[in-house]
């Protein structure tokens, strides 16, 4: 048990380090796209440690407690995440729904803390974040439902990945092309990448939920954000890209997915919040349901 917990914490730490490095590298890549030199690849580490070295302000106990709950919830979620087929802390318990809902604990903690700061912009940001969540989550879950049904009924993330590695089975992004597109769009929404970046919107609502944070609280939220991105991208890799047999493959896939999303996002402007909702409930939902019907009832899977 203790070993498992340590492995789990290791996964969380790995996710943090990986995503923070990836974040820095991607800042560099986006900078090159914009003809700039860009920061050092370890810039994100510097940023986070700098935040920890500053003296922050606190708006009362709920402000601090929410941050702790947020980071705690996310660390707990990451502990269940399989990295490769072998690196997994709690085998058999990596249920897809745990990720979706345990992630929500962290989000709830952050939302609570943000609202507890007493700043109206923070509450607006939380409102937008939740609304965006309502938008992207439903199509995504329908696609995942299709996947679970197709694998013959397993919602274990690592087993879904293993299913795709069996000879004769395609990766689900190929097997379910419509669903794959929906998943990519939803992933952009989950990560808060550009067209769906409505709830951060620095120029509009002063970075939304994060408006009152500085110093260590902001640092913890950054750590939380990095781990969240790790979880979401990993989920995508395991569910749609056939998982990873070895660490090298995993790193490669991770890099490709994250970079591709960043490149897409670097050429987009921001949606308004109601546009986000309408967008997701128009095409992605339609595509997801179509995909579910043709895959489950008609059995048309590539």
């Amino acid at each position: 048990m203790v070993v498992n917990i340590l492995v789990g914490l290791g996964v969380a730490l790995f996710g943090f380090v990986l995503q923070t490095a990836m974040g820095g590298i991607n800042r560099k890549i986006v900078a090159r796209v914009q003809k700039r030199i860009g920061p050092k690849w370890y810039q994100e580490f510097i940023d986070i440690f700098k935040l920890f070295s500053k003296r922050s302000v606190s708006h009362g106990w709920i402000f601090d407690f929410g941050v702790i709950m947020a980071l705690g919830g996310i660390i707990a979620t990451a502990m269940f995440m399989p990295v490769t087929a072998n690196i997994i802390a709690f085998e058999g318990y990596d249920n897809f729904f745990i990720f979706v809902y345990l992630l929500a604990v962290g989000m709830l903690g952050m939302a609570m803390s943000a609202s507890g700061s007493g700043n109206p912009l923070a509450s607006i940001g939380v409102m937008r974040a939740l609304t965006t969540m309502l938008a992207y989550e439903v199509p995504f879950m329908i696609v995942v439902m299709t996947i679970i049904k197709l694998t013959g009924g397993t919602s274990s993330v690592s087993e879904i990945a293993a299913f795709q590695q069996i000879a004769g089975n395609n990766w689900f992004i190929i097997a379910l092309p419509l669903g794959g597109i929906v998943a990519i769009i939803s992933l952009m929404g989950m990560l808060g990448k550009k067209p769906f970046e409505t709830y951060i919107a620095p120029a509009e609502i002063a970075s939304g939920p994060m408006v009152e944070y500085g110093g260590k609280q902001l640092g913890m939220l950054f750590v939380m954000h990095e781990i969240t991105v790790f979880i979401e991208v990993s989920l995508f890799i395991h569910l749609f890209l056939g998982g990873a047999a070895t660490l090298g493959v995993y790193l490669l896939k991770y890099f490709l997915v994250y970079t591709a999303l960043n490149l897409i996002s670097s050429v987009y402007a921001r949606f308004k919040i109601d546009q986000v909702v309408v967008f997701f409930y128009k095409w992605p939902l339609f595509m997801a349901v179509t995909q579910a019907i043709i895959a489950i009832y008609l059995g048309w899977v590539i």
């Binding site: 860009g38 920061p39 050092k40 510097i46 620095p202 002063a206 970075s207 994060m210 408006v211």
Partner: peptide
């Protein structure tokens, strides 16, 4: 940004 500088939204940050 190559010096690690960047714009932020609020004084707290």
């Amino acid at each position: 940004e190559r010096l690690g500088m960047g714009p932020m939204a609020t004084p707290r940050q």
